[in-house]
Amino acid sequence: MAADTPPADDVLMAALAARDLSALAALYDRYGRLAYALAYRILGESEAAEDVVHDAYISAWRGAATYRRERGNPRGWLLSIVHHRAVDVLRRKTAFRPAPLEVAERRAADEDTALMAEKNVEQQTVRLALQALPDAQRRTIELAYFGGYTHVELAALMGVPLGTVKGRMRIGLQKMRRALEGTRA
């Protein structure tokens, strides 16, 4: 790989599929911090987060040949592996109990996010789009994605029908999509 200009993600994915270790290293340098931060946010433990990121990158290494660009960009693909594994670990560790909503929200919410996050435009945009949602929609999305709750668990937790949970997710994500498209246009 050329050393002067950083290779595009798609180039790295092709190299990864060809079993090029330097591509794996480059993808780690590029997304390792974000992957670790996501795993840590979901699990709240550094060792568990480290193991999840390790396993996710090895899974990407093994499965690079199966990656299809039309189903998402390499960053999204890689982070979806991290997310999936982290939620799996979380669910194995914590059998669901109908905890008070406030407790669940404390776990799902990252109180330090606003202080610690890098102030780049993309992060600000996503955060603003989420914060602009009505509370019920925002909490439902956060609890599902960062808290690892299934829709059935969320319905019990929030005391609403399953259809309401589904509707909040759908409408919330639609609003976020429009907001993100608006800022990227």
Partner: peptide, 22 residues
């Protein structure tokens, strides 16, 4: 839908992984 969901990690505070992980 995934374009929105894949943006959610951008909300997370970046965190330095242990040096040994790479």
């Amino acid at each position: 839908i995934a374009t929105v969901v894949n943006a959610l990690p951008d909300m997370v505070a970046l965190r330095e992984p242990p040096a040994r992980l790479k």
